[in-house]
């Protein structure tokens, strides 16, 4: 049974935000608009968190691309009163939009604040409807959404592999953000499979996880920048 995980190399990352936009495109994330932006209500499954420190001329900046950590022990799933978010046997933490009652308890329980709420009815101009990804359902107003590790891609890949009756290969299942990254900073794969790059990278001395002390056991690892 695979344990899907991600490694993000902060030394490669240049904060270009391609991953954010690719995720919007892949997952039909609605455009929330200027007012939402002013209220900090923009929906973003992947967000490049920027930490700027210091004073001119000693200024340091760190870009931290932040998807859902797909915690091995997710604080968010336990608190959901209706089981609208749950972790599956392969370690992917998913959302069931048709089940969610919009209490936002999970969002509060997530120590990484990666969950977005649909404060308003998402609106897709008529001319843009054809560009919706048919593999991903759009979300109604009033529910929570977040990074799903592009789970639908796994399903497609599985089908494909079954059709060609062969085992699933490492590069069969790559999330949109990892695929687009111009510096290949994002690597994805099965943490339990020694042949997968992620499994080797997490052993790198530069590897760390966010808020490890909380014991949530994120499956998204980072490699520190070399400075």
């Amino acid at each position: 049974m695979p344990r899907w995980g991600m490694v993000i190399d902060l030394d490669r990352c240049n904060g270009c935000q391609a991953c954010e936009v690719a995720c919007r495109s892949e997952n039909n994330v609605p455009v929330c608009g200027p007012n939402a932006a002013a209220l900090n209500r923009t929906i973003s499954w992947m967000r490049v968190v920027t930490e700027v420190e210091g004073e001119w001329p000693e200024v340091r900046t760190r870009f931290l691309p932040r998807p859902c950590m797909h915690c091995e022990r997710p604080p968010c799933t336990a608190v959901c009163p209706v089981g609208a978010t749950a972790i599956d046997e392969e370690g992917i933490v998913g959302q069931i939009y048709a089940r969610c009652i919009g209490c936002r308890y999970c969002a509060n329980a997530c120590p990484y604040t990666v969950k977005s709420f649909n404060w308003r009815r998402p609106d897709y101009p008529a001319s843009t409807l054809p560009m919706l990804n048919p593999d991903v359902s759009t979300r109604p107003v009033g529910v929570i959404e977040k990074c799903t590790f592009c789970h639908h891609r796994l399903q497609r890949a599985r089908e494909q592999a079954r059709v060609e009756n062969r085992p699933l290969r490492e590069d069969d299942y790559v999330p949109a953000c990892a695929e687009v990254c111009p510096t290949s900073a994002i690597v994805f794969g099965d943490l339990d499979n020694p042949n997968h790059r992620v499994a080797q990278l997490v052993k790198d001395p530069r590897a760390f996880r966010l808020l490890e002390a909380l014991g949530t056991q994120p499956k998204v690892y980072y490699l520190t920048e070399s400075r």
Binding site: A18, A22, T128, T183
Partner: peptide, 19 residues
């Protein structure tokens, strides 16, 4: 670019379908 893109390149699809 070897498969990588910048955010503009990905968003180009919105130019095509722009209302």
């Amino acid at each position: 670019n070897r498969g990588g893109l910048c955010p503009k390149g990905v968003a180009g699809i919105q130019l095509l379908y722009h209302p």
